[in-house]
Amino acid sequence: MLVDDHTLTEEGLDARGGDPARVLVLACGALAREILALFKINKWDHMDLTCLPAKYHLYPEKIVDAVEQAVAKHCETYSQIFIAYADCGTGGLLQAKCEELGVEMIAGPHCYSFFEGNEVFAQTSEDEITAFYLTDFLVKQFDAFIMKPMGLDRHPELRDMYFGNYTKMVYQAQTNDPALDAKAVECAAKLGLPLERRFTGYGDLQAALAEIKAPD
């Protein structure tokens, strides 16, 4: 059974063991549920998942070192490792590190882009620079990722300093879940933004993982 969202945010997820005949997907904790769902739907039995804490989303400068350490930790027991991160605010440093380590990663600037589809996102993002994006995970962990670290739970008067230039919240739904839809409405209200729900499914995440073949 998968750990809860709080644990995925704070601690991540351990790999279940190690097997040179399998591929390890090293992911952001914010993608754990989606990746496991894709494993199940597609019967990708040749892959294991391990996740770094999703809270690194808030401190992108930690991602590169953490990925390097995790690759070093698992490269003895897995013959192939795939990095399920986009650039995620690392300014190209994660891509450079992956090239140095000889591992593949997902294309795109961040998860909002690959969920929407990188090509589509690149075309529309210029018209949507005032959109604030949430995914299923971020809707569920809204307080942990937005309200608390930005201090809005203690100082709601800061809201417009952070979000005054945004004009809408776009909820990119990976699944159809009325409970999450209702929570997204609450999130938008907290930031004082109108909400647009957009079903994306798993977007380019699915395509990227589908490319991974079992080791020979």
Binding site: M150, G151, H155
Partner: peptide
């Protein structure tokens, strides 16, 4: 100090 506190100070 973190960003929220800096913003309050800046304000």
């Amino acid at each position: 100090l973190f960003v929220p506190e800096v913003l309050l100070a800046a304000n």
